[in-house]
Simulated assay, not measured.
Amino acid sequence: MKTQRTRSQEKIFHLLKTLDSSISAQDLYIELRKRKQNIGLATVYRSLDALKLQGVVQVRTLSTGESLYSLVQQDQHHLTCVNCGQSVLIDECPVHDLEDRLEKSHHFKVYYHTLEFFGLCDRCQGMTGPLEG
């Protein structure tokens, strides 16, 4: 069953289609204003939530607590530095088989998954000195 989208949801969906990276709700709101789309910030958040529930938008929460939104295209995995916030996209995914098994065993439709490792990048490791283990 296809869900009917509101005009605000459609505008946000189409804007996300034009972007090549994830974006925060605040920045999405600013971008919509630049494009003369008069949508309030609360409506942006509600629309993003509705699109997420439809399985077309994914959200990634950074170590800073900021949420970034993008269209569900492919699973993305990252190495994220907890000091400087640098995030590096990694191509490997060790959980695709697990995802398939979970869908079958729990009768659960997975829209997407995220995998993120948190630590210190090379530069930040050099600034803090040798790591103690």
Rank of each mutant, 00 (worst) to 15 (best):
L71K: 10
A42S: 14
V56L: 02
D97R: 12
R60H: 07
I90G: 05
A42G: 11
C124V: 04
H113W: 04
R33A: 08
D100N: 12
R101Y: 10
L28H: 06
E92P: 00
H96P: 01
L41I: 12
V82D: 11
D100S: 13
I90V: 15
E103F: 04
H113G: 04
S105K: 13
N38K: 13
K34E: 11
Y112A: 06
L62D: 07
H107V: 09
Q54H: 03
H106Q: 15
V59D: 00
F108W: 15
L131G: 14
L98C: 11
C124A: 07
N38R: 13
L51C: 03
H113M: 07
V59N: 00
T64E: 02
R60N: 04
F118M: 12
R46V: 00
E92V: 09
L131E: 11
V95Y: 15
T114G: 06
L79H: 10
T80H: 07
Y69M: 01
E92A: 12
S47V: 03
L79F: 14
V82Q: 13
R46E: 06
G40R: 10
Q54K: 03
H78E: 10
D91K: 14
F108L: 15
L131Q: 15
L98W: 14
R101T: 08
K52E: 08
V82T: 15
R46S: 14
V82A: 10
Y29D: 09
E103V: 02
L115Y: 13
Y69Q: 01
V44I: 12
S105E: 14
S70E: 13
T64R: 05
M127C: 07
G65T: 02
C121Y: 02
R35K: 15
L115I: 11
L68P: 00
V110H: 03
R35Q: 12
S67A: 11
D91G: 11
D100K: 15
L102C: 05
Y111C: 09
L32H: 03
S47D: 02
L41P: 02
D100W: 04
I90Q: 10
V82P: 01
R123K: 12
I90M: 11
L89C: 00
Q74G: 09
C93N: 15
V44L: 06
E66C: 00
V57L: 07
C84V: 05
D122T: 05
D97N: 12
A50T: 01
T80W: 03
P94G: 07
T128L: 13
R123T: 10
D122M: 02
L71A: 07
D100L: 13
G129T: 06
S70P: 01
P130C: 04
L71N: 08
R60M: 00
I39Q: 06
R60P: 00
L51E: 00
H107F: 09
Y29F: 15
V95I: 14
E99G: 06
S67V: 01
L28V: 08
V57Y: 06
S70C: 07
Q86T: 04
E92D: 10
E31W: 03
K52D: 01
D75V: 07
Q73I: 12
V56E: 03
P130N: 11
D49C: 01
C84T: 05
F108A: 05
V82M: 13
A50R: 04
G55Q: 05
Y45A: 01
C93Q: 08
L62T: 05
G65C: 03
Y111L: 13
I90D: 03
C93M: 10
S70Y: 02
L89I: 08
